[in-house]
Design a protein around this nucleic acid. Structure first.
Lengths: 334, 334
DNA sequence: TTGAAAGCGCTAACAT
DNA sequence: ATGTTAGCGCTTTCAA
């Protein structure tokens, strides 16, 4: 006994009354059940059009036990890297008749759990993009939001996982720079707590082991344009002849600063990014970076999630290895 | 009589049974109704934690007649301009206890109506960002999804509307270029059907009227990096000494091409954008552009929507006038 | 082919 | 302070 009178909501009962049939028949017409007399069906459709009826998703979900909708929780909708993944995910889900709803936590790590629970409760399944919460919280949350796929965090097979191999990727960047003759390389580090930054640090440690003659200096930086822009003095201080950034956004901010400072790239300093966001091929100079097939990543996230929805789970994580794309921002050490 | 057995969903009844109380009491505890005996409340909370219960949003929505959630339909989640608006909207809505769910139509104009109806049916209200559908379709849709606010399309007072004044804005860019001495200016036009492009064309017509001595040449372009990149030959052909782009993304793509071609900016060619996306201050040269307080736009969208939800509608459209931000990509005609 | 009725999980009168 | 119950809008058995 409730339901706020929000003015005049048209319900199935209104249509039934208007068309002079039962609610069951209206439901059948709405759902395209073929056994309805065409005359009657037409009357129903007329009433629907007339009154502008469209069925309550809440009621359908409750009755059906499913909504054919999935949720995606993203820490920062402004991150271009996520868009490409989201795009692939969206297309793939749409092909299978699912709708995708996105919630942006705007880096409020403390609200992630609440938002994930909430959105999961209005959808059939959920995807968490690079969640910022700590591992224990995440592992604890997972059973409560199953079916779930996590992008870019490991889950110890407690949920589907799709990952980009950052360790390997940053290693490829470093080796590229080393081949170009650079022996002192700065790494503009991402946020210290970010898992993807830790993975990159691990990757760099491997390269350090392989090339004791090369010095890779980590410089505190961050993940934004501003962070990259601000990193120049620290990088200069290292005396490095090449810099690789946590991601393209940082690299681009850094490049902007170098242009201002009159530092020529790649002659005086080689610069590399990571992610290959769309703008990176249009910057000047165009940016050497790691390219992941992010659309495919999105599709893989969907297929993994669909398996989970259908119960044919396979919790083996999928890893995508990005490829080096060499453009004009890196060059031989002079 | 339905509800797919999706494994084991915990419901309020399970908690009631586990805690040895009625569903009503569980509901009270979940909703923080104070009149519950602390001992009992504790038992309930224990059961909730134990079983990992979280209430079904569908059932709550149905019972309450509201979900405290709003939907936003965006034509392209990758457009940086939308992020800033979305951010302001999100923050403002959150302050009032509302959750924001975003659906991306990925420029599938023909699916916009369906998606809007669907998302509106699981939320309390909806915002349409720059809908691509034709005007008649839009006007027809509006009553069906009320309460609704439209961003960047006029609605003839049939719904809330928040607009950026593109005509005035592009005029300001043109006048800036004219003051710098440019007499032949290229306009890299956006998609022909885009309302925001038409508004810009109108604004340019006004300037043409004011300055008969100045020639403003419209060059077909588009709205992407690629479009801007590809526009160079056409612009060169016009012989213009300055170019203003449909938006920053186009301007940045164009700038990338100019760098490749060795055209120096602003010495040989002045370039201006529109929107002031975050990267524009880090490009080289940094981009002269029109800055709108997009966060404020988002907040205004929310307050307009909230008025509609509360029934205190005021359908007077709100217009935001962007400000010129001069950076390094425009200069005196040489 | 159509209708009646039960039930999805929850909330809120109302009764105790 | 707690329980009972009706009902939110829909789908689906079951009977006609």
């Amino acid at each position: 006994m409730t339901a706020k009178k929000t003015g005049r909501e048209i319900t199935i009962s209104d249509i039934a009354a208007a068309a002079g049939v039962s609610k069951a028949t209206v439901s059948r017409v709405m759902n395209g059940v073929s056994t309805v007399n065409e005359q009657i069906a037409e009357r129903v459709r007329a009433a629907v059009a007339e009154l502008g009826y469209s069925p309550s998703a809440a009621a359908r979900s409750l009755s059906l036990g499913e909504s054919r909708t999935i949720g995606v929780v993203v820490p920062d909708l402004a991150n271009p890297m996520f868009h490409q993944v989201l795009h692939g995910l969206n297309s793939a889900a749409e092909r299978d008749g699912y709708r995708v709803l996105v919630a942006d936590t705007r880096e409020h790590r403390e609200r992630e759990v609440e938002i994930a629970l909430d959105i999961r409760n209005r959808t059939d399944a959920i995807v968490l993009f690079a969640p910022r919460m700590d591992r224990l919280t995440m592992l604890d949350l997972m059973p409560k939001i199953d079916p779930v796929v996590i992008f870019n965090r490991t889950t110890g097979k407690r949920a589907g996982a799709v990952l980009i191999d950052y360790a390997e990727g940053i290693g490829a960047v470093a080796r590229h720079l080393i081949e170009l003759g650079h022996t002192k390389i700065a790494y503009l580090a991402g946020p210290p707590q970010a898992r993807s930054n830790m993975a990159r640090q691990d990757g760099l440690d491997i390269v350090r082991g392989e090339h004791p003659e090369v010095e890779i200096v980590s410089v505190d930086c961050g993940s934004s344009f501003e962070d990259g822009y601000a990193a120049w003095p620290a990088v200069r201080e290292t005396g490095a002849s090449a810099a690789m950034a946590f991601n393209d956004v940082v690299a681009l901010g850094f490049l902007g600063r170098l242009a201002e400072e009159g530092v020529s790239v790649p002659d005086e300093l080689s610069v590399a990014g990571f992610d290959d966001i769309p703008f990176s091929q249009y910057s000047s100079p165009s940016l050497t970076t790691m390219t992941a097939r992010l659309g495919d990543v999105g599709e893989k996230i969907w297929s993994t999630l669909l398996e989970q929805i259908r119960g044919t789970a396979d919790l083996e994580p999928t890893t995508f290895a990005p490829q080096l794309t060499v453009r004009s921002s890196t060059g031989k050490k002079k």
